[in-house]
Design a protein around this nucleic acid. Structure first.
Lengths: 152, 152
DNA sequence: ATGGATGCAAAGTATTTGCAACCTG
DNA sequence: CAGGTTGCAAATACTTTGCATCCAT
């Protein structure tokens, strides 16, 4: 797990390398995004960023997270319906997701046995894997209780 | 692999059980949806359904696929950005995807060992899985050859 | 200086919903 | 017949984009 400052530097350098200007807005947005080590929507990120600079627009937040995805720093995901969520890929180990289809709760997990099998299966088909995406959808403990009691 | 008629019957019966009326629109939409054994968007499905009944609206297609998801007959997915895609879960065996990031080739596969582990991992977190999504991205045999020779 | 970046608002997509007419059970 | 269902259009929700202004380099 790298320190936030290292990540900021990496992002800024990469931006510079691409001839992208480092504005105060981008500083604030990227900073906030990195600190929020969880899945975050543009709306949420925008909300938090406004604590730093009240004038930053949602459009700029959208433009910035898209830039981060473009740069490989962030990943965009659609969990179920609603807004897309963005996650910083630099300050975290690889992980997959468990998503509760009732309350939307997201749990991250990692399982080496599965990862190994993925590589094996891929190899059987002649593939060399560079990355993967795995999401398990279902009902979390809390929602199981509620459903069990409330079902008609 | 069940025959389309069996699937239709199952869906119709389930609908009836839920007190849902079986209209000619639903017949046409579900029929078309089942025949299209692939991921399909509402727009695409609507387009195909209009071949049967020109007057069916997109709103009804949306309402119907949502009903199918609700009934557990279909699955809704977001591949990247754009429209959601729906897939019939009844007329196919479950499978996951291997996607070549160079040529876009998609190979379907199934691996029981992985599926078992997924259930196990989920259980460890108190989840009961209803479905999952797993996509392995990488390079297929053909593209591996080409990359080795053509890379700049 | 210069052209990329921003804020705003308007435009675009994707999907849902209110409503009166309509049809299934 | 009753009330669920439909088409239509308007409404939402989410995201992108045109443009004049602004600012990092």
């Amino acid at each position: 797990m790298k320190a936030p400052n290292d990540i900021m530097r990496r992002v800024r350098d990469e931006a510079r390398r691409r001839g992208v200007r480092w504005t105060t807005q981008r500083q604030a947005i990227v900073e906030t995004f990195i600190s929020a080590d969880e899945h975050i929507t543009v709306e949420d990120l925008h909300h938090r960023v406004r604590a730093i600079d009240r004038t930053i627009s949602a459009a700029t937040v959208y433009r910035t997270v898209n830039m981060l995805v473009e740069m490989g720093v962030a990943t965009k995901r659609h969990f179920g319906s609603g807004s897309a969520t963005f996650e910083c890929e630099v300050n975290k180990e690889h992980h997959d997701h468990l998503v509760c289809t009732s309350c939307g709760k997201i749990i991250e997990f990692h399982n080496d046995a599965i990862e190994d099998l993925q590589v094996t299966v891929a190899r059987e088909h002649g593939f060399v894997i560079s990355y993967h995406r795995m999401e398990l959808y279902g009902s979390c403990v809390d929602c199981q209780k509620q459903t069990g009691a409330a079902e008609a």
